[in-house]
Simulated assay, not measured.
Amino acid sequence: MLMTSPDSVAKLQYGPSDFRVLKPGSHVLCAVTGEAIPLEALRYWSARHQEAYVSAEVATRRLLDQA
Rank of each mutant, 00 (worst) to 15 (best):
D65N: 05
A56E: 15
M1D: 12
F19L: 10
P24H: 14
Q66N: 10
W45L: 02
G34A: 06
R62H: 07
A56I: 05
V32N: 00
V21C: 09
Y44W: 15
H49K: 15
L64R: 12
S8P: 05
R43I: 03
S26V: 06
E51G: 02
P24C: 09
E35K: 15
S55I: 03
L63S: 02
R43N: 12
R48D: 07
T33D: 04
G25Q: 03
I37L: 12
P16D: 15
T60N: 13
Q50T: 01
L63Y: 01
F19E: 10
D65Y: 01
T33Y: 02
A47F: 08
A52P: 01
G15N: 15
M3D: 12
L29Q: 12
Y44P: 01
V28T: 05
V9Y: 05
I37P: 07
E40L: 11
A31M: 03
A36W: 03
H27A: 12
H27V: 07
Y44L: 06
A67H: 10
A52G: 08
E35F: 07
M1P: 09
E51S: 08
G34W: 04
V28M: 03
L63V: 01
Q66Y: 10
P24Y: 11
I37K: 10
G25V: 04
E57T: 05
V32F: 00
T33W: 03
M1T: 11
A10L: 09
P6Q: 08
R62C: 03
T4E: 08
D18S: 15
A56F: 09
L42S: 08
Y14T: 04
K23N: 13
V28Y: 02
P6L: 10
L29T: 08
L39Q: 02
P16H: 14
S55W: 03
H27Y: 15
P24G: 09
T60G: 07
I37E: 10
E57W: 02
E51H: 13
F19D: 06
S5L: 14
L42G: 06
T4K: 07
F19T: 09
V9I: 13
H27S: 12
H49I: 06
E35D: 13
A52T: 00
L2P: 13
D65M: 07
K11W: 09
T33F: 00
A10R: 07
G34C: 04
A31Q: 01
G25S: 04
D7I: 13
T33V: 02
M3S: 13
L63M: 14
K23S: 14
G25F: 03
